[in-house]
Amino acid sequence: MNPVWTITKREFNSFFDSLVAYILLFAFLGFSGFFTWLYGADIFIRKEADLQVFFSIAFWTLFFFIPAITMRQLAEEKKTGTIEMLLTKAVTDRQVVVGKFLSCLLLVCVALLFTLPYYISVAQLGNIDHGATICGYFGLILMSAAYIGIGLFASSITNNQIVAFLLALFIGIFFHFIFNFIASASTGMLGEIFDTLSLSRHYESIIRGVLDTKDIIYFLSIVFISLVLAEINISKRG
């Protein structure tokens, strides 16, 4: 069996062995459901058969949800020393990082799977735009992948989980809205650069139903760069 998959499977199971997975799934579905269906500018106020409300809520809930699942990934291994046991097995640093990345992504996909009833309900209520909705889910997965990458990078720097969590949020907040904010406040070259860097801009264009390769490349390059940095960090030992 491929070592990446062996690691992914173990990590994924360990989410469910500890309470992490249950608490976070509960919190994610609770928040997203509450704001999508019950409170604020919910689906009934909007009166349109789409999941735009859910997509903008999940944009925020996942932003907090993901650092909480990535924070322990490498930080805890380093703290307890299990990383030594792991890396002296017949695996490479890269396989460990990728395995952990996939397990987190899988957990997020499970969380998103639980929101499929939203999709089905709205489809029953009106004429939903299937393309845009599937595009929206795709956007959520891409965004999650980017934040998981950032989270793993943060976790690879420290052996303190809280530091890893806060660091992931700190880095994330730039992509999440600070770049966007700077982009709107500035003009010309600078505005364009920050516009390109802003994760929310790319995300918004995807959930509108426009699937542009530029956006996909943007997300994948965040994943790639942060995983490479995480790998470099764990390869620096002793």
Binding site: T80, G81, T82, I83, E84, M85, T88, K89, A90
Partner: peptide
């Protein structure tokens, strides 16, 4: 690595 069996010093395990 696959030819080596290693028991690290403080015996770290996934508890």
């Amino acid at each position: 690595k696959k030819y080596i069996g290693y028991l690290p010093e403080n015996n770290p395990l996934y508890l």
